[in-house]
Design a protein around this nucleic acid. Structure first.
Length: 626
DNA sequence: GCCGTTTTCGGCCCGACTGTTTTCAGTCG
């Protein structure tokens, strides 16, 4: 796990302990905020600390992070030095570990858990279940039969679900719900929001927003929502807010027929092994005139929204999901209920403009400095992508023939597709040995005469072996138009070994793309943890593009790494790692990840015109691509 | 614990829903 993530987890754990111990809520929030800031910081803080001239310089650099002050900077340094924070250990000693886990149960907050702990000695899920079973839970203040029923149900759901859902499956569920809501009477707008709209790699729930013409229409829509096909439980049901659990249809392709992804394969089978049976979906309704304000409110991350509100306050305004209002002193009621007229509310652009901001794309709304932008940045878009440089065929573990692959790529409007089947070490993925590779290159060349309107390149996704050498010798690599070098095995190497391994691959003159650089799998496998700063410097020097693998199981580089790579001046390749026809649809996830990294079309090699792309691929390798 | 275009002290986003309550606390996003 990356250093930033480990540190963020430690701080978040400290915050949870403090909550349960009942310490000042603002102190808790400061730790939570710092944890989020550190988790999403594109700089590897371990590298930053190591690079600093001395402790004071390191501390100053840490304090430059929004939300990190004097004390937390000290804790970060302590964590880097000792691998732990003494205060965290002390806090953890005061709170039962099982109680912390219960914070994950929806409906159980710190106050309730503290009451259960102090009142009747609940310390974990087992003792909570006993207290429910024997009724002692009812002796705790504010605990009635309904509350207990909810807790019992929530416990069950948490136990049978993995919690978070990956971007791809979440997108499919959300699209289905939005479709359902659009069909309801009086529903004039429907859109999913939340972390899904921001393109996060995994989501905890699905937020759907609708605008209804009248309150009666809204009520009808919420009735249709809780009665929607696939709903397994109704958690809350109101006229403007409802929450349900929706069953997730398992994707047969990700059911586990064979083993993991250890040596090759694309995103890998078996991803459905820990299939989440259901996900929470929330529906919110606003009147059409509040659509933009509501969409903003339910799309922005917590930090983004807090910053927006702060900005509104500075201007003497109040921002909520109904609009941006003048902050007139009035009775203790929200402005929209006092008949105050909104300054802006109808569209997102209108509200941002009234706050003096450009309309920020959803992927940017994370509270990572986007409010300082003078103009909306020109981020890469799906339609900018004109080439796929990482695709498999039936020669290894793909489902398409070379011709089939090329035809589908052409239909997508691509001018180039690279056939990059696995190399010999990826035996599970039927990697090609030297003889099969030579034959395959000939087959790719022959396919060129069968498909017009697209350039078919002969390439390979060559394994980067554990020592950083490539899986084919230079003579074989010389036959290829494109070499995508990827790590598939030995993904638990120590960071220093992984760094040396990947640097060696980057420095190889035949390598043009570093495929899924860390080998991580979302919510499943941490992957390699090389010193990213060193990798990026070398990639820039050698003109090697770093891949953002668009498959939702991978999304590797991840958003924070991609942002650091782009800031370091690296080239980026957004590839679908095509195995099956529908994998082309994953492009949106790769593009969203690039957008989350503030990347425009410029450094993305897949956006380049054919001539420029081909020239870049040929550079350093005279004679290729005829 | 953090932060500063009123502040180095005194603030720290806002509203809906639920359940247990006779006016509100807790949770969530």
């Amino acid at each position: 796990m990356p250093f930033n993530q480990r540190l963020a987890d430690e701080l978040a754990r400290m915050a949870s302990c403090m909550e349960l111990l009942g310490v000042d809520a603002f102190r808790v929030r400061a730790h939570q905020r710092a944890a989020r800031a550190i988790e999403s910081d594109p700089t590897d803080l371990r590298e930053l600390i190591d690079r600093s001239a001395n402790e004071a310089a390191a501390k100053a650099a840490l304090r430059a992070i929004e939300g990190v002050g004097d004390k937390i900077a000290d804790k970060a340094l302590e964590f880097a030095r000792d691998g732990a924070i003494a205060e965290a250990r002390q806090l953890a000693g005061e709170v039962p570990a099982g109680l912390l886990a219960l914070l994950e149960v929806p409906g159980l907050g710190p106050k309730t858990l503290r009451a259960l702990w102090q009142g009747i000695g609940v310390t974990d899920a087992a003792s909570l279940k006993r207290a429910i079973h024997d009724g002692t839970i009812l002796t705790v203040p504010r605990m009635g039969n309904k509350a207990v029923d909810k807790i019992r149900h929530a416990l069950m759901i948490v136990e049978e679900s993995a919690g978070r859902l990956r971007l791809g499956p979440a997108w499919a569920v959300a699209a289905r719900i939005v479709e359902h809501m659009r069909r309801q009477v009086g529903v004039v707008e429907a859109q999913f929001a939340g972390s899904l709209r921001r393109g996060r790699e995994s989501v905890g729930d699905i937020d759907v927003l609708i605008a209804a013409r009248t309150p009666e229409d809204a009520e009808g829509a919420h009735g249709a929502f809780v009665a929607m096909p696939g709903v397994t439980a109704v958690l809350a049901s109101g006229k403007t807010r409802s929450s349900v659990r929706v069953a997730i249809e398992p994707d047969p392709r990700w059911e586990p027929p064979t083993g993991g992804d250890g040596s090759g394969g694309g995103p890998g089978p078996g991803a459905g092994a820990a299939a989440v049976p259901s996900v929470q979906a929330d529906l919110r309704t606003v009147p059409p005139e509040s659509w933009g304000a509501a969409l903003m409110y339910f799309t922005g991350s917590k930090d983004h929204n807090v910053q927006l509100r702060g900005l509104a306050q500075l201007r003497g305004l109040t921002l909520n999901e109904y609009g941006l209002f003048p902050d007139e002193p009035g009775p203790d009621k929200p402005p929209q209920q006092r008949g105050v007229r909104a300054i802006a509310a109808r569209t997102e652009g209108e509200v941002y403009a009234a706050l003096g901001l450009p309309e920020l794309p959803p992927e940017l709304r994370e509270g990572r400095g986007e409010l300082g932008l003078a103009a909306a940045p020109g981020l890469v878009r799906e339609e900018n992508i004109r080439a796929e440089l990482h695709a498999h065929t039936t020669a290894s573990d793909g489902w398409l023939s070379v011709v089939g692959l090329a035809e589908r790529a052409r239909l997508r409007g691509f001018h180039t597709v690279a056939v990059t089947d696995h190399s010999r070490s990826s035996t599970i993925a039927r990697g090609l040995d030297a003889a099969r590779l030579r034959a395959h290159v000939r087959a790719v060349h022959e396919a060129r005469s069968q498909v017009s309107g697209i350039t078919i390149l002969a390439g390979s996704e060559v394994d980067i072996l554990a020592d950083g050498s490539l899986d084919y010798d230079d003579d074989l690599l010389g036959l290829l138009d494109v070499v995508v070098a990827s790590p598939h095995a030995s993904l638990d190497q120590p960071p220093a070994v992984a760094t040396a391994r990947l640097l060696r691959a980057i420095e190889h003159p035949r390598v043009r793309v570093l495929g899924h650089p860390t080998g991580r799998l979302v919510l499943r496998r941490a992957g390699l943890e090389p010193a990213m700063g060193e990798l990026f410097a070398a990639a820039r020097e050698h003109g090697v593009a770093l891949e953002i693998n668009a498959h939702w199981m991978r999304l590797d580089l991840r958003d924070t790494h991609a942002r650091a790579a782009a800031e370091a001046g690296c080239l980026i390749a957004i590839n679908c790692d095509v195995h099956a026809p529908e994998d082309f649809d994953n492009l949106r996830f790769g593009v969203m990840t690039a957008r989350r990294a503030w990347i425009g079309p410029g450094p993305v090699v897949n956006t380049w015109p054919a001539e420029r792309l081909h020239a870049w691929l040929r550079s350093g390798r005279p004679g290729a691509i005829t």
